[in-house]
């Protein structure tokens, strides 16, 4: 059942883009849209949007880079270790939980390292990969999406995003303990 589900989703993922292109452009032709010129008209915005994001992304990534390089993460891990013990989360996976909202490449590195040290099928390995799949890189998403429309006052977006991350991590610990718990 799980294998079938996986194969199905994989097939959809691979076929989605060609199918989407075919249906969208085909529908356009059926509806007598001048597909080529309309496509080019829309595509023009691509450059502006990408360039508009640059300052926001530079600001965000530099701050995250400085934070990561300073060793502050290790410090934070030490401070928070008692809390994680309380909820039955192995302290080794705490850097993963903290890094996930900040940096995609950083959390990927931590996940790979944890699997190398503890093995991918150990509780820590499974929990780390579940955590990776349980959330997005919040600060990157905020910088890119808000950057594209020049939003500087993000209001409650950061707390909402971080609450989502927190619950994603707690959810990952909870479900992994039930299914693969020690």
């Amino acid at each position: 059942m799980a294998d079938f589900f996986r194969a199905l989703i994989n097939a959809i993922s691979i076929l989605a883009i060609p199918l989407l292109l075919f249906v969208f452009l085909g529908w356009g032709i059926v509806k007598k849209v001048k597909v080529y010129s309309v496509f080019v008209e829309g595509a023009k915005e691509g450059f502006d949007t990408a360039v508009r994001i640059i300052p926001y992304l530079v600001a965000m990534l530099c701050a995250i880079g400085i934070f990561r390089a300073s060793g502050a993460m290790e410090l934070l891990t030490t401070v928070l270790a008692p809390v994680t013990n309380l909820i039955g989360m192995p302290p080794e996976t705490l850097p993963m939980a903290l890094m996930r909202p900040l940096s995609g490449s950083g959390s990927l590195g931590i996940m790979t390292e944890l699997m190398k040290v503890h093995g991918p099928d150990s509780f820590i390995g499974i929990l780390a990969s579940t955590m990776y799949g349980s959330s997005e890189t919040t600060f990157y998403v905020l910088a890119v999406y808000f950057g594209s429309v020049q939003v500087k006052n993000t209001r409650h977006a950061v707390p909402a995003g971080l609450i989502a991350d927190l619950f994603g991590m707690l959810g990952a610990v909870f479900i992994c303990r039930i299914f693969f718990g020690i």
Partner: peptide, 19 residues
């Protein structure tokens, strides 16, 4: 992002015009 942005924004525009 420029390339994929242009591709998908183009496709979206066609889809939009076609309803």
């Amino acid at each position: 992002l420029i390339g994929i942005m242009a591709l998908w924004l183009g496709v979206m525009k066609v889809a939009d015009e076609a309803g």
